[in-house]
């Protein structure tokens, strides 16, 4: 920066211009050698910043995952219980199971089917009232290459069966929404948990 011939533009104006591509002062900036030099400086700073972060992430990734293993082990993530679902046949003892446990059950059913990954799962209805109708709504990510109607039907049936066996919920419907498609596996072989 040459203080004698300073054009008076502030560095924040230049970095705003760099960020947004817009400035009321663009006509000056585009033709002022000093502004252009400072823009070039800001651009190289930005590039150097990205490179520095890449270097840092690469060197940290190179350290392995030991630090994270320890951290995750120490987290002791508490489970999410959700609502309490009464078990009608045990009303005398007021036994219940948690909504969180039922949702985990649904998730596991999905994970046992080829190509399926279950995302969000919601039990809609008065699950705390024995016998009240409940709808199960699941978001599903499908592996590309599986026929979706068949996948949806198989998943619905599997979830229904599992909930009939494992819970006392009155399941009125299981609704499957495909929210995502995943790339096919690199190998044609099934490392994804078997076919449908």
């Amino acid at each position: 920066m040459n203080p004698i011939r300073d054009c008076g533009r502030r560095i924040e104006d230049l970095s705003d211009y760099l960020e947004t591509g817009f400035s009321a002062d663009a006509a000056h900036i585009e033709h002022c050698p000093q502004c252009q030099a400072r823009l070039a400086g800001l651009r190289s700073l930005h590039t150097a910043a990205l490179n520095l972060m890449d270097d840092d992430v690469a060197s940290l990734s190179g350290e392995g995952t030991g630090w994270l293993d320890g951290m995750l082990a120490n987290l002791r993530l508490e489970t999410r219980a959700g609502r309490s679902i009464p078990l009608a046949s045990n009303t005398a003892d007021l036994l219940t199971e948690t909504e969180g446990a039922v949702i985990a059950l649904v998730r596991n059913v999905g994970d046992s089917l080829g190509g399926v990954l279950i995302g969000r799962c919601r039990l809609d209805g008065e699950v705390t009232v024995p016998g009240a109708p409940v709808e199960v709504n699941v978001n599903v990510s499908a592996r590309y290459g599986y026929p979706l109607p068949v996948m949806a039907e198989d998943l619905r049936a599997a979830i229904l069966t599992e909930l009939l066996v494992e819970t006392e919920l009155n399941v009125a419907a299981v609704n499957v929404a495909f929210t995502d498609m995943r790339e096919p596996l690199a190998e044609p072989g099934r490392t994804d948990g078997g076919g449908l």
């Binding site: 959700g82 969180g100 985990a104 990954l117 995302g119 990510s141 929210t179 995502d180």
Partner: peptide, 21 residues
């Protein structure tokens, strides 16, 4: 399930984590 989740998109993992996975 961790292996199955390896190529799952962030959005799906966030939904599952939100449900307690």
């Amino acid at each position: 399930p961790a292996g199955r989740l390896a190529d799952a998109p962030d959005a799906l993992l966030a939904e599952r984590a939100g449900d307690g996975d």
